[in-house]
C-alpha cells in the first residue's frame, strides 16, 4: 500500500502554538524603577547593585569560614543585628562621616584578611567587622525612609546581605582542599584590589 510521510513546516507549527500564547499575554506592570526605593525587590537589589557592598559582604563570609568556629556561626547571627544599628543611624539621619571611604576600606581590609588568611583573637575580628557593619547598615538605612514600603525594603536588604554572607561561607568551604585555599586567597587579593580602587574613587583619586 502506498504511504508517504507529510510534515507540516516547522514554522507553521511554531506559529500555531505561539499565536494563542501571544494573544494571552498581558502588559508587564513592573513598578520597581531604577533608583527608586520601592519595596522588597529594591531592598534585595540594594546590596547587590553596589559592588563595594557586595564584595565586602562576601569577604566577611569567607573570612568567617577561615577563622572557623565560633566566628563561622556567630557572624551570620550577629552581623545583621549590628548592621541594623547602622541602619537606624541612617534612618535617623545621624551624620556619619566618611561613609563611602569606610565601605571601600572594608572591602580592602577584609579582602586583605582573606588573602593573607589573617588569624586574630575572635573579639578583635568581631570588633573590626562590627565597625564595618555599622557603615554598611547606614548606607542601606538612609534609603529606607524613602521606600514605598520601608518594612519590605528592610526585609529585602537584610535577606540579601545574609545571602551574600552565606555565599562567602560557602566559598570558604573550599578550604578543605589545598587548591581551594589558594583559590580563596586569590579571591581575597582581587577583593582587596577592588577595595583599593573603590577607596581611591571615593576619596576623589579617580574620577
Amino acid at each position: 500500500m502506498l504511504s508517504f510521510r507529510f510534515a507540516w513546516p516547522f514554522s507553521f507549527r511554531v506559529g500555531v502554538i505561539s499565536a494563542p500564547l501571544l494573544l494571552l499575554s498581558q502588559p508587564a506592570l513592573a513598578h520597581d524603577q531604577p533608583g527608586i526605593a520601592g519595596g522588597l525587590l529594591s531592598g534585595i537589589m540594594h546590596p547587590l547593585t553596589g559592588p563595594d557592598h557586595m564584595i565586602a559582604m562576601v569577604a566577611v563570609g569567607i573570612w568567617g569560614a577561615q577563622l572557623g568556629a565560633p566566628a563561622i556561626w556567630i557572624l551570620p547571627i550577629t552581623f545583621p543585628i549590628v548592621m541594623a544599628i547602622g541602619g537606624v543611624l541612617g534612618i535617623l539621619q545621624v551624620p556619619l562621616p566618611f561613609q563611602e571611604p569606610v565601605i571601600a576600606l572594608s572591602a580592602l581590609v577584609l579582602g586583605a584578611a582573606v588573602a593573607t588568611r589573617l588569624k586574630m583573637p575572635f573579639g578583635f575580628a568581631a570588633l573590626i567587622v562590627a565597625i564595618f557593619a555599622i557603615f554598611h547598615g547606614y548606607a542601606h538605612g538612609v534609603e529606607l525612609p524613602h521606600a514605598a514600603n520601608p518594612l519590605a525594603y528592610g526585609i529585602g536588604f537584610v535577606v540579601a546581605t545574609g545571602l551574600l554572607h552565606l555565599c562567602g561561607i560557602s566559598i570558604g568551604l573550599l578550604l578543605r582542599w589545598p587548591i581551594g585555599d589558594r583559590l580563596i586567597r586569590g579571591m581575597g587579593t582581587v577583593i582587596a584590589l577592588l577595595g583599593c580602587y573603590f577607596l581611591a574613587r571615593s576619596i576623589g583619586g579617580i574620577a
Binding site: P76, I81, P150
Partner: peptide, 16 residues
Amino acid sequence: ALGGWIAAIGLMMIGF
C-alpha cells in the same frame, strides 16, 4: 541566623 535577620528587621522598624 534567621532569627538574627528577623531581629535586624525589627530593630530598624523600631527606629523608623
